[in-house]
């Protein structure tokens, strides 16, 4: 199997980013089709394990999208999510994985165009990175 486009998993908060993704679709905005949106009740739900598992299961990058700071439906979920992502990025570096594959974003439900822009930016970023080595192994084994 060869992948022409990097696979991006987007964990999107139900209250904002998921709605923004919906809005982007509703507005017929074009953004790369390689994103897999996973709805979560809050960005604070995204444990480091989920991000690591996504990377282990073949994602090239992961974005976590929560509400604008100060607007979390559960007060501090998005702030916690940001700190966890920052900590995880340091771990990724130790694991030999480019930390820029994972990023936290803040959105409101009205920011459909911004969602499309972020997906495009992340995709562009992932294209610029060397292919994940584990893929090479998979391909060799296939």
């Amino acid at each position: 199997m060869t992948r022409s486009e990097p696979l991006l998993v987007a964990f999107c908060c139900y209250w904002c980013a998921y709605a923004a993704a919906d809005l982007a679709g509703g507005m017929r905005l074009s953004y790369p089709p390689n994103v897999r949106v996973v709805e979560v009740p809050c960005s604070g739900r995204v444990e480091p394990e989920l991000i690591l598992r996504a990377l282990n299961e073949g994602a090239d990058g992961v974005m976590v999208a929560g509400c604008l700071e100060g607007d979390c439906h559960y007060q501090r979920g998005n702030l916690r999510a940001r700190r966890r992502v920052e900590r995880l990025r340091r771990l990724l570096e130790e694991l030999g994985v480019e930390p820029e594959r994972v990023e936290m974003f803040n959105l409101s439900a009205a920011m459909g165009p911004r969602f499309a822009q972020i997906v495009a930016e992340m995709t562009e970023r992932l294209r610029g990175l060397p292919p994940r080595k584990f893929q090479a192994v998979e391909e060799a084994g296939a």
Binding site: L55, N56, L91, L92, L95, G96, V97, K133, F134, V137
Partner: peptide, 16 residues
């Protein structure tokens, strides 16, 4: 988390 991290690290090393 650590189990996932070990898998990821080993995969990146090219020996799963």
């Amino acid at each position: 988390i650590l189990a996932e991290a070990i898998r990821l690290w080993a995969g990146e090393q090219g020996r799963p």
